[in-house]
Design a protein around this nucleic acid. Structure first.
Length: 422
RNA sequence: GGAGGGGUGGCAGAGUGGUCUAAUGCACUUGUCUUGAAAACAAGAGUGGGGCAACCCACCGUGAGUUCGAAUCUCACCCCCUCCGCCA
């Protein structure tokens, strides 16, 4: 959500921003409805003022006068009631249009329609020289680390089951991430719910537009595709203390995605599953673009630090306008190297929103002048499993089919190498 | 799932149809007094919206209703507390 005053005064800017994001939105219609809404609002408020004044007079009036005034108010009440209904309708339209207005992309965001137009900003690591790299599916099945057939039998399409060293490797990654952030400090570890109320999805910008990618319960709640939803809603309708900012949280949660728009993509293995687990970095900071940019780079660096510690080759891309969400101002994707595909695949997504989410969620703080300000919000993946296992396994595969455990994970895994019957 | 009680300003807590623009206390801000502080006394102070000045409107869990008028009456829902049942 943007400030309506800002929209009124910068309509052309908003239109250009929407175009850059390749989103359709009718700002002119919004402005027309807004005009109408304001007109009705002052009419209604004028009548209410009259009603309040006369209401005071009724108490002191003589019996005759009282009867006259009450009669007068009965008439006013009918007119007011009509106008109020009209206002409610216009207000509803206004709300619907307001939640469709996208946040402005940053000037540094490249032009483009889809992820194909994202621009590489840096590359890290040496890609391993493997003659005929096996896929993680083949490697894991051979080593008894995963069962995809039974995963589908039990859970349906995109189902999977990690077992044996596959399960252990997954635990090792979780413990490694947790320890990494505890040692770094500054982040509050949190275990947050995945079953979350509608209002939290509206607040973070996943609804109303993204409903087809969410699982919904018969009680009207939804399963979150990221811990960001619950973590942001944690502070919904609260006024924060400025001295506590920035607030950094590391949230762990199961994540659920219907993948409604990607039926034919990545149908094998762990790349695109309906149910996974994610450590997410979520930050609330003061309303300053400079502070946001500083923290955005920091969150990105944190994620890169994990990949470097795991010695996984990756690159960072800056997402183009068409690949940005409604509320995102700028986003970096980090993509790790997948030898069997011969390309980088997305493992992290690091974005900032300015006050787009906090305005919807009503998360504010009082600045040094005593004025209320909407905080700024950011988030980035810390690490998501099982997707990251793909790169860990494939980049560390040996010719005979065993897997060398990355040094950083050995103490958690309890072994240096995953091989048959190990 | 069943029975009962309750949601009021930063906190505590009055208020059961019309000066409620919500008492009172605590906490807070400013001033007086004081070398300074405390105490005492006095004054002030919420959030959002419209005009952007005076001013006006809304907000007593949420939404709808009754009424000329609702914190107050009615209905639905949400949340909290106590007890029972069930359960990890």
């Amino acid at each position: 959500m943007l400030d309506i005053k800002f929209i009124r005064e910068n309509a052309d800017l908003i239109k250009a921003g929407a175009k850059k994001k390749h989103l359709e939105v009718d700002i002119n219609q919004l402005l027309a409805v807004d005009e109408k809404r304001r007109g009705l609002l002052s009419e209604v408020e004028g009548m209410r003022a009259k009603q309040n004044t006369v209401s005071d007079e009724v108490v002191k009036a003589s019996p005759d006068e009282k009867a006259r005034l009450i009669g007068e108010m009965k008439t006013l009440k009918e007119t007011l009631s009509t106008k109020e209904k009209e206002l409610a309708e216009v207000d509803h339209q206004w709300q619907l249009l307001m939640v469709q207005v996208p946040n402005l992309p940053d000037l540094s965001v490249p032009e483009g329609a889809s992820d194909a137009d994202n621009v590489e900003v840096r590359v890290w690591g040496d890609k391993p020289a493997i003659a005929n790299p096996k896929s993680h599916v083949e490697l894991m099945q051979n080593l008894g680390m995963a069962d995809f057939e039974r995963g589908t039998k039990v859970s349906g399409f995109r189902g999977y089951i990690l077992k044996g060293d596959g399960a252990l490797l997954n635990y090792a990654v979780w413990n490694f991430v947790q320890d990494h952030f505890v040692k770094k400090g500054g982040f509050t570890p949190m275990l947050v719910p995945s079953l979350v109320k509608r209002v939290a999805f509206l607040g973070t910008g996943y609804l109303p537009q993204g409903e087809e990618d969410l699982y919904k319960t018969q009680d009207g709640d939804f399963l979150a595709g990221t811990g960001e939803v619950a973590t942001m809603a944690y502070y919904m309708n609260e006024t924060l203390d400025k001295k506590d900012l920035p607030m950094k949280m590391l949230s762990f949660s199961p994540c659920f995605r219907r993948e409604a728009g990607s039926h034919g993509k990545d149908t094998k293995g762990l790349m695109r599953v309906h149910e996974f687990f994610k450590f997410e970095q979520v930050v609330l900071c003061e309303a300053s673009h400079e502070e946001t940019v500083r923290l955005h780079e920091e969150l990105t660096q944190n994620a890169e630090g994990l990949l470097q510690a795991l010695n996984l080759p990756y690159h960072v891309v800056v997402n183009c306008g068409g690949d940005l969400g409604l509320g995102q101002v700028k986003k970096y994707d980090i993509e790790a190297w997948v030898p069997s595909e011969g390309k980088y695949r997305e493992t992290h997504s690091s974005s900032y929103f300015h006050d787009f989410q906090t305005r919807r969620l009503n998360i504010r703080y009082r600045d040094e002048n005593g004025a209320m300000q909407y905080a700024h919000s950011l988030n980035n993946t810390a690490l998501a499993t099982p997707r990251i296992l793909i790169s860990i396994i494939e980049n560390n595969q040996n010719e005979e089919g065993s897997i060398t455990v990355p040094e950083a994970l050995r103490s958690y895994m309890g072994k240096d190498k995953i091989q048959k019957n190990s």
